[in-house]
């Protein structure tokens, strides 16, 4: 029986945009190890904010997140960075690759932070690029890659340090249908064959189809889990 790998406890995040807006309002969710989780909901419902909080990219106003039992609240900024480094992989909607680094260098970047020897990092980088079908594009700069290819590099980068969980913010939101199908298949493969845990924010029903858990949000509140 799979275990809870990540959970939120009364998580809150509000913004002051003239008036107080609760982007995440008292959210309690659980993510099981090896599961595919999809967060859906209309625009402005707080999906991406929730994912940012899960990824430690932003701090909640109150509440807590536990990743493998480790409370985010107990971590200072340096410790939170280490958590992101070792246990989390984040895939952005707009890929966010470093433009002056090649695909391989982008994938190797997280491994530089873990003091992985360059030779091993390169080997793993190439393996990951092969895994996402880009072994022949390893020395290309992001600008020389298509959107789908850039997203594949971003996925490979997220996998670099063998994270406990991968968080993806609308990973197919900026891609055409064919490319999107390829990315969906890749996620499915990584999840089903390698047991990688995913939490994804998406509007894409094709990703929801094979999700173990669909979390629906509206106005910052989880309405269906």
């Amino acid at each position: 029986m799979s275990q809870v790998i990540m959970e939120t406890i009364n998580l809150n995040k509000a913004f002051s945009l003239g008036e107080t807006i609760y982007a995440v309002n008292n959210v309690n969710i659980q993510i099981m190890a090896g599961s595919m989780n999809v967060i859906v909901g209309p625009s402005g419902s707080g999906k991406s904010t929730l994912l940012s909080l899960l990824g430690g990219l932003d701090r909640p106003m109150s509440g807590d997140i536990l990743l493998q039992g480790q409370s985010y609240r107990e971590l200072n900024e340096d410790q939170l960075a280490l958590l992101r480094r070792h246990k989390l992989g984040y895939v952005f909607q707009f890929f966010n690759l470093i433009p002056h680094l090649t695909a391989l260098e982008n994938v190797m970047l997280p491994m530089q932070f873990t003091n992985t020897p360059n030779k091993i990092a390169k080997q793993r980088g190439l393996e990951l690029l092969e895994r996402v079908g880009l072994e022949k594009r390893s020395h290309h700069l992001p600008l020389q890659l298509s959107g789908g290819e850039q997203q594949r590099v971003a996925i490979a980068r997220a996998l670099a340090n063998r994270p406990a969980i991968i968080l993806a913010d609308e990973p197919t939101g900026n891609l055409d249908t064919k490319t999107r199908d390829g990315i969906v298949a890749l996620f499915q493969e990584l999840n089903q064959q390698e047991g990688q845990t995913f939490v994804m924010v998406t509007h894409d029903p094709s990703l929801s189809k094979f999700a173990d858990q669909v979390i629906t949000m509206r106005d910052g509140v989880v309405v269906y889990q």
Partner: peptide, 16 residues
């Protein structure tokens, strides 16, 4: 900024 945000998201520590 974007590059720094990426570096932070993959674990660059504030003191680094």
């Amino acid at each position: 900024k974007r590059e720094l945000s990426v570096l932070k998201s993959i674990g660059l520590m504030p003191r680094e």
